[in-house]
Write a protein that binds this DNA or RNA. Structure first.
Lengths: 212, 212
DNA sequence: TATTTTACATTCAATTGTGTATGGAAACGG
DNA sequence: CCGTTTCCATACACAATTGAATGTAAAATA
């Protein structure tokens, strides 16, 4: 086969990853062969083995295209809206995150694959990858809830640790329920009242002047 | 090979399922062959194909050994403790469920396999199975929260729909975080304060005499 | 006790996927 | 403009599983 220009080669690499997403999503990672991926992209396994070491390498590359840490969301919020409490920043970051997932089909698909369409293979450990994402999000939440506690924004009796567990579990549960079948409901429309309700229940009401 | 008695045959069936759990948990469903399962149980594939149609059939049998709907937990609570509000029944049922998962290693392992160690194969759709379990739990929660609402047990502004979403998401998130690596923390010890806090925030405080 | 099932083990044929080696034409660099 | 490298297709060797066929000895059955 004739050699392609650098731009064309990069394009086929992307096309291969797109095809991998399609097939992984439809048949699961284990049940899709590199042959199927290549065919679906209009190529042969030769192209796959040129751009990627093996299926695991391909999987990693697929994930790298959508990586997006929670802390970045908070940073964006705090950069945009200046004078906002940390609890409010968390709330807005959550809503922003929900909107991102709703509107970015690639991110949605890749996460669905990571969570529901794959298991161990070669040197890939999807559970460890999920753990990393969750830990990252959790740590970010905890830091901001610590500050919220110091600013006396949390209702009495609510420790930052429990608050973190609660928010983290709620977001994770919502996400899992949604990603299992995104066509069932809109994560944004269900998530917004959920987050608002939870945050509002966690926030100390300003009129009552309790001492902590 | 010599024929076994009925009791012995039933025992080898259980042993095969135990072996399947072991191997599925350790290597994932897709990566374990029936040969490996048979060997790990001290048998050959002949035994497997005698007791089960194929790997999918084995998987189904494995799940049937641990099935345990949420409504049963509520029923147990309401049978045991007579004079209890429906919101309190939910709370106790959740705590009971947490304890069950903590103490039943087989149930824990099988759910971990269903959620994190398998994907599509033959005629098995693990996501649909998870969906069934979740829907069942969700429906039970909703029915009891509807009653709670009618009994004016929920804080003002909290609809039974949002309350259901919230509880369901929190439980699901907690469970997912835990099942990803049960050695990281005790689902009971983290879950009890979580559930108590959430339910207490959802419960209308008895002293304030608001009208809905 | 004679016959039929049962509960496996063993063997076989066929399929499927993987990694690699090789080839070729065009793009790239000097 | 010519050698070199790149990008991919084709071909091949190899291993791993699967389902089914067959064998067999003991338990059930009547």
């Amino acid at each position: 086969m004739a050699r392609k220009t650098k731009a064309e080669a990069a394009a086929t690499r992307e096309a291969l990853l797109d095809a991998a997403e399609d097939m992984f999503m439809e048949h699961g990672v284990a049940r899709t062969s590199l042959e199927q991926i290549a065919r679906h992209a209009g190529m042969t396994r030769g192209a796959v083995y040129w751009h990627f070491k093996n299926k695991g390498d391909m999987f990693r590359a697929m994930l790298e295209r959508v990586h997006m840490p929670f802390q970045d969301l908070v940073d964006e919020i705090e950069a945009l809206e200046h004078d906002v409490s940390s609890l409010e920043a968390i709330r807005l970051a959550c809503l922003q995150g929900l909107e991102r997932f709703e509107q970015n089909p690639r991110s949605r698909r890749v996460h669905a694959i990571l969570i529901h369409r794959c298991e161990f293979f070669s040197d890939i450990d999807p559970i460890a990858m999920q753990q990393e994402i969750v830990d990252e999000c959790r740590e970010s939440l905890y830091q901001h809830l610590l500050i919220s506690k110091e600013q006396h924004m949390l209702v009495q009796g609510l420790s930052p640790e429990v608050a973190t567990d609660l928010l983290q579990a709620t977001l994770a549960g919502l996400f899992h329920d949604w990603i299992r079948d995104p066509s069932r409901f809109s994560i944004y429309e269900r998530g917004v009242p959920l987050v608002n309700q939870l945050i509002s229940m966690m926030r100390r009401s300003p009129d009552t002047s309790e001492t902590n």
